[in-house]
Design a protein around this nucleic acid. Structure first.
Lengths: 325, 325
DNA sequence: ATGAAAGCGCTAACAT
DNA sequence: ATGTTAGCGCTTTCAT
């Protein structure tokens, strides 16, 4: 691939002149400009972003760490992040954490290796302490959907506990007393919080919490199906069900349909949302909305404000909202 | 951030020695190694991938172009691409084509700017001619789900026509004669092919093709819903329905449910698949499987073989498969 | 086993 | 308005 020197030689000027023309700095005689532009065209010249990065000490790259890519959740984040970065002509580097602290650490290492100007972390496995240590380094980063004490100004957060509580409260208001819960894995903080919300709503309403009415799944569709089966097999009685994520709700709904259990007559449903998977369901299933897109957008804007050292205006904390159907 | 020179100075050696130790080339006195490692640790040194790229003239980066990110389709590709690249310690750069040829062109420009070693294109808007021109340049690329004459060795392909045909043939074998079709937008080649497949199946079975039985949607859920409504409003009679994608099938199913139309008694369904969205549906909906994951994996492996100039073993052409439910 | 020196493609003072 | 020069952080011959 042609270099700036090749262009300069062909145009009969010095490479710094070519550089200036590319970057539009200063004035040039029109025939100089013409010669250079012609040379660039004939050589099909593209400036090397890499060389430029080294020379300017700014990589123009931004990192995004996620746990995994499949399922639509990540795409939703990525869409926002990429769009915003496109506006600023920045490159996006993605990396996946592979469901482990080591994986996340390695991903961040790569961001550092590329001298990313900053990065957005949807970290689920790094400890608060480790994140605080990371914050001591000079590269700015933002935490998406996580609250770490001491790093509040880098956090974009959502109140999972309250969201779950609101969902369950809605069921309670409908007159339900025996409310089952399909929870997520307890090694994830947001899962714990959602489960907490369920417990809180029950307790505050003075309803007894029957441990047998909670089944712990793994956020996958199949586990939602199995959870409901388990509930019935253990002889539980419930008139409503709260699922801590959409995929498991889909599995649950499948079970209800297969066993001709009438929704919402025999069982009322409400789900925690992520990417609107339940929207197509029939009968419709209410959800408590998780504003991932908006949060991702805020995250990247917050990050850019940190990179450019400007002030950030948007919201950092997002409130849950019921979507009744 | 500390540079290699900082490490060298602190360790009291020359920077080329540090470089060699990092890259494990040659032998070193154990105390030299110790001093250098210590210096790297205290300075928290990370080699700059950018500087390294410039020096070695290999960016270690690979590009991936997609049309958009949301909806799960992209995540499926990304998962495979990233996993494979991780194995080779390569960086992934993503870019979106924004539903236009200009957008795709710009995305590829960025790959060139970063001196990507190669890229995977899920291009929908660049013309065959333009892609052939692009192939004349030195950077290797692979086309995912596209067949361009003259570039066969860079293509990972799927027979959309045959897939659609098989789906419709299945319905015909079940005894259906009036088969409706929800097609995608005709400006997309794969949409045309799928619609072709529908027509072919009907014709080969000697069934009349009623133009009123085809409705053209936009691949979104809502348009599937509207399509079915339109079919009924125009007084069409059909006992089976083929949808050219999953989202539209979800919309259609919603309509059927809302209007108490019995599946599969009153209307039998089969859908073109992409990310298994229909899997959770009840009653179950059969699909013709689109092996996106496998194709993406092949694409990136093919690309890497081109980059490394080794030979490629996997499949380049994928055959459709029915998934009856 | 390690140092010296050149160079990767570009930018950014500093000259003229 | 344009040329000169010195880097940016690293690798890679070539010496020693």
């Amino acid at each position: 691939m042609a270099s700036i020197q090749d262009v300069a030689s062909l145009a009969g000027v010095h490479r710094s002149t070519v550089s200036r023309i590319i970057n539009g700095e200063g004035k040039f005689r029109s025939d100089t400009r013409r010669k250079v532009e012609q040379a660039m065209a004939t050589l099909n010249y593209r400036p090397s972003a890499i060389a430029r990065s080294l020379a300017t000490a700014s990589s123009n790259m931004t990192g995004l760490l996620v746990t995994y890519y499949t399922g639509g959740f990540f795409g939703e984040m990525m869409e926002q992040v990429q769009n915003e970065l496109d506006l600023h002509k920045k490159f996006l580097i993605t990396a996946q954490g592979h469901h482990s602290a080591d994986g996340e650490r390695e991903a961040i290492d790569r961001f550092h290796a590329l001298r990313c100007e900053g990065y957005v972390l949807n970290s689920r496995y790094l400890s608060d302490d480790e994140l605080r240590e990371l914050a001591a380094e000079s590269t700015p980063f933002v935490l998406l959907d996580r609250l770490v004490e001491g790093l509040e100004d880098r956090c974009i957060t959502f109140d999972h506990t309250l969201a779950a509580k609101m969902a369950v409260q809605h069921l309670i208001q409908q007159g339900h007393r025996n409310i089952a819960c399909i929870s997520g894995p307890m090694d994830r903080i947001s899962s714990q919080q959602r489960y907490q919300g369920y417990l809180l709503a029950m307790q505050e309403a003075g309803l007894p919490v029957n441990p047998g009415l909670t089944v712990f799944g793994d956020y996958k569709r199949e586990s939602g199906y199995q959870a409901v089966r388990e509930l019935y097999q253990t002889g539980m009685t419930f008139s409503a069900l709260f699922s801590c994520n959409e995929e498991m709700m889909l599995g649950a709904v499948l079970y209800f349909h297969e066993h001709a259990i009438d929704i919402p007559r025999q069982v009322a449903l409400i789900s925690f949302d992520s990417v609107d998977l339940c929207q197509g369901l029939y009968p419709p299933v209410s959800e408590v909305y998780f504003p991932l897109s908006e949060m991702a957008q805020s995250a990247v804007k917050l990050l850019i404000s940190k990179i450019n050292d400007t002030s950030f205006w948007g919201p950092q904390h997002f409130a849950p909202q019921l979507r009744l159907r």
